[in-house]
Amino acid sequence: MRAFINKEACIGCGLCPSVAPDVFEMDDDGKARTIVEDVPSSSEDAAKEAESSCPTNAIATE
């Protein structure tokens, strides 16, 4: 599984790194970014939760 952030849609709320800290972090620009190319299987549920919880739908997983 992979996770992606749409930087233009991201508002920098910080929800995704709080839900999936092994997958997301806040970047210097105040917006989220992914920190892994492939989401570890142990973090897949958290990445999907972050995707469904994002208030601007800025996260996509596949």
Rank of each mutant, 00 (worst) to 15 (best):
R2G: 00
R2F: 03
A3Q: 01
F4Q: 12
F4S: 14
I5C: 01
I5Q: 01
K7S: 11
K7P: 03
E8L: 10
A9F: 09
C10S: 04
I11F: 06
I11K: 11
I11W: 00
G12P: 08
G12H: 06
C13W: 03
C13N: 11
G14Y: 10
G14S: 10
L15V: 15
L15R: 01
L15P: 00
L15H: 06
L15Y: 08
C16Y: 09
P17L: 10
P17H: 02
S18R: 15
S18M: 14
S18Q: 14
V19A: 10
A20F: 01
A20T: 05
A20I: 08
P21E: 04
D22F: 08
F24N: 09
M26F: 09
M26L: 10
M26I: 15
D28P: 03
D28M: 03
D28K: 14
G30Q: 06
G30V: 06
G30S: 03
K31V: 11
K31D: 03
I35N: 07
V36F: 05
V36T: 07
E37S: 15
E37W: 02
E37C: 01
E37M: 08
D38K: 15
D38T: 14
P40H: 04
S41G: 12
S41M: 04
S41Q: 10
E44C: 00
D45E: 14
A46P: 04
A46R: 13
K48D: 12
K48M: 12
K48Y: 11
E49R: 15
A50D: 05
A50Y: 08
E51A: 12
E51Y: 03
S52T: 13
S53M: 15
T56R: 14
T56V: 10
N57G: 09
N57R: 11
A58T: 12
A58I: 01
I59Y: 00
I59M: 03
I59W: 04
T61G: 04
T61D: 08
E62I: 02
